[in-house]
Design a protein around this nucleic acid. Structure first.
Lengths: 231, 231
DNA sequence: TAACGTAATGTTGGATCCAATCAACGGTCG
DNA sequence: CGACCGTTGATTGGATCCAACATTACGTTA
């Protein structure tokens, strides 16, 4: 930990500058895929991406490799990259992972949770109440969950959890469309924060498990309905 | 699913040929790191790796990117890549992840487990009984666990599980050194297979959780002893 | 007509070259 | 004597060029 200093505001404000072109391309593509602007199955031509992003093909190649490792794109040798498909099965897969990871992270985090994280979580709940944009909604939801897990230690567990929470963003628009966005299970969020504040890990985990299961069912119903509609 | 055919044996036998140089480099480095031949903290110079592996720097660069996404190497911009460090904290992190993922995978898999996987698992237990090489031991252990989880569906969950089971290989030598290798909790393996064969998911999960916790404690003790010895 | 073989085209994988950045060293100034 | 500053060497990041592969279309042959 570096000592706190007024100069920190400089660096934190300057952080969103990309250090390398590869990082820029990776972040740009990742955001575009997660926010649904690039549909599943869409081919990603290296040359075209390079031209549009104002870089050469090389940073694009490296970024695609990293996105491949995150299962956001699928790369076939000599055939190029396509945006990973979304499907009911993939959503269920994702929920199985979240259902395993997030309760574990929450259990580990709650005993160490500090006032700072609780305040941040409360602020994020309030922000979600008034957020109109579904895109930012996903970000706020992710930040809220991660605020609750932040004290778990175990950096790898937290990175994994955040990655799959972010991957869920690709399905979030369906979720919002399916069950009206007025309350994205906000009462669950409040209950989790309440239980966390009282140090009751098991109560918080119970709410969280119901929260995830409910979201999983909503998405499954949405896909089932869409499948029925199409056939 | 493609229809089964006698020709499948050809392709499966020919699979271990590398399709691209990048794949070759990635697999080579990954194996070297997991088997402990490359110690944590060791710098990986692109030029040197390229020369030793008989390729140019470019496949090395791409391979390092993918290994970075798997947390096997750490890449600092303009400063190069180093093999990820191992530590008591990282081992605990890894075990927290395994402890979350593997019971979930096992629960999902047991109801669908077929005779083929059970037979494979039994064969792997027998193979572990007579395997002298610790390096291959890790592979057999991983294959045994994955055989039990294989019927879970949810490909992403299985890939994650296998990745972190493989990451554990870096600590396996310590584990074997710590608690004698004569039985790497082979009775746990047998008990899990037994419970799985009877379709008793909860019993199998209970054994598995104890299995993982025991390994975690053995590793923690080993690190504690080493720290005490060094100071 | 259908299947095979071949050529053309576009895309990716790999190699080489150049530029940007970082670390270390040495000199200078306080 | 210590801290700051420019320079040098080494290494990575990025661009361009060439080769290998896959797909498509076309022509040939049974």
């Amino acid at each position: 930990m570096s000592p706190a200093s007024p100069l920190d505001s400089l660096t934190t404000a300057a952080t969103p500058r990309w250090r390398t072109a590869t990082e820029f391309v990776e972040a740009t593509l990742k955001a575009a895929i997660l926010e649904g602007r690039l549909p599943g199955g869409m081919p990603l031509r290296q040359e075209e991406l390079a031209e549009r992003l104002g870089v050469s093909r090389m940073p694009v190649r490296e970024a695609l490799r990293q996105l491949e490792a995150q299962a956001l794109v699928e790369v076939l040798p000599h055939r190029g990259a396509v945006v990973a498909e979304i499907s009911a099965a993939d959503a269920a897969d994702l929920f199985a992972i979240r259902r395993a990871l997030e309760p574990a992270a929450l259990r580990l985090s709650i005993p160490n949770l500090g006032e700072a994280q609780r305040g941040q979580a409360a602020a994020l709940i309030a922000a979600m109440d008034v957020e109109p944009d579904p895109g930012r909604m996903g970000l706020l939801n992710r930040q809220f969950h991660m605020a609750l897990y932040a004290a778990a230690g175990h950096p790898r567990l937290l990175v994994l959890t955040e990655q799959h929470l972010a991957a869920f963003d690709r399905y979030l628009r369906f979720h919002l469309a399916a069950q009206g966005r007025e309350r994205m299970a906000q009462q669950d969020h409040r209950a989790m924060l309440e239980a966390a504040a009282q140090g009751d890990a098991e109560a918080a985990v119970t709410v969280l498990e119901g929260h995830i299961d409910q979201a999983a069912e909503a998405i499954a119903r949405f896909f089932a309905a869409r499948a029925a509609q199409r056939c």
